[in-house]
Design a protein around this nucleic acid. Structure first.
Lengths: 244, 244
DNA sequence: CGGCAAGTTGAACCGCCTCAATGACGGTGG
DNA sequence: CCACCGTCATTGAGGCGGTTCAACTTGCCG
């Protein structure tokens, strides 16, 4: 029975040690998986009554389009992340999700979600904690775009992705695989792909980090974190308040 | 016993009709109120184990400071809004709250919160819906700062505030009281106060909206919404999924 | 070999910032 | 009563960060 834990189980475990039946519940949620091709939208904005997804493998992103043709990437989803959790409550999604690579997802119905929450409050708390963490990342992203320079917020993004990937066993202190191109990166940090290119060059020339051929390599992680004004408290594994 | 409903009760009622005992529960949460002077921080970033607040009267904002002295306002809080709800779960807040005017707040402990949620799942759903709505507003804000011009996102903010205030009975289609100055506005839209001034002038000269002497007056709301690329789906009162 | 997607670089432009100054208003103390 | 102050709004001039447009390159795939 000792299967390797899924990325989600791994992430939640770091936050709150999970009992065998709780791990089994996660496995149950992840049972019905399906493959979605790169460049496909998983959820369209304003689509109603859809499901949530657990990303099991590959990368995706949440984004919104603006009338002039521009796109803003809200955040990236990596294995172990929920997608569309909020829209289960709002019933209609406020943004779209797109697969950036071929991905494997598990579809979770609102009813499954609510049933699970009622039967296993500890698991519910862990999942809500993860959702809160994601929201804190969006806030940090907002601050970066509003008040930090292109160099700083790009550095910030690379550091953050690295730490998130480490939490699910997909990265190290020295490097990680990153299937993004400069256009997607630009849509995330609110810049032009052209300027992202120059920013990445600067980071490379300062011997802080190299992003090339789908791989991010840290040369001077402390220096990079310092430049990025990294605090990262929002990724800390603080203990939750539990019901009961 | 027919007291006027509090702003929170009024807001939640529009989303989900509330039973008398549910309204009573809200009143109970709001019982212990206290006054906080303008310019005071209600919650400091990284403060742990604090409470959540319900804003009963006045305006506040959630913000983060950046090392160079800049400030980014994440969102504004108006009567009927929760503040610090997320940090009840994360246990440590990822941003600060500041009173912009003298405010009246009710302090709610995490335990009160969780007890109430377990006893009244419908009320819990309504509150979580409101929290989801707030999060959708942050996302919209992020998109605005990342991909929309100064003019458009300032217009957007003025429209959004107007609609939110209407939902709690503090504004109309033609105007509302707005105690913000151009510095706070600038911190919200990611601009300089100086540039906010020029943007407001433009909006005035285009006969769309005037913001002066603590009051926002719409001259051409449809035109303003059009400029602001207003869709506002995230403020819609969609029906929730209820547990059970 | 051609074709396409992604990365790279240069030059000119512009939105917004920075610095600086001035005006309007209310409060406060002489 | 006016002098003085702090806060906020307003306007101008110049500069910088990032955009726009336009190549050109590189690698991959048919």
């Amino acid at each position: 029975m000792s299967m390797a834990m899924s990325p989600l189980a791994r992430k939640l475990s770091r936050f709150l040690p999970l009992a065998p039946d709780e791990l089994a519940s996660i496995a149950a949620l992840e049972a019905r998986s399906r493959v979605v091709a790169a460049q496909t939208d998983l959820v369209h904005e304003r689509q109603a009554g859809h499901h949530a997804f657990i990303l099991l493998d590959g990368w995706a992103c949440a984004y919104k389009l603006v009338p002039d043709g521009g796109r803003q990437v809200i955040d990236f989803s990596i294995p172990g992340d929920f997608m569309g959790l909020r829209s289960v409550l709002l019933r209609t999604s406020d943004h779209s999700f797109s697969a950036l690579t071929d991905v494997v997802v598990a579809e979770v119905s609102p009813q499954q979600m609510l049933d699970g929450f009622q039967r296993q409050p500890r698991l519910a708390a862990a999942i809500l904690w993860a959702a809160s963490r994601d929201e804190a990342m969006v806030v940090e992203h907002l601050v970066g775009i509003g008040r930090r320079s292109a160099l700083v917020r790009t550095a910030h993004l690379l550091v953050e992705l690295g730490l998130r990937l480490q939490l699910v066993g997909l990265g190290s202190d020295t490097s990680y695989a990153c299937p993004l191109n400069q256009y997607v990166l630009a849509d995330a940090v609110g810049l032009t792909a052209i300027h992202v290119n120059r920013v990445l060059r600067q980071l490379r020339e300062r011997r802080l980090v190299t992003f090339r051929d789908g791989r991010v390599e840290f040369h001077d992680l402390p220096g990079l974190r310092s430049l990025a004004e990294w605090h990262g408290g929002y990724l800390d594994q603080a203990q939750p308040v539990l019901p009961g």
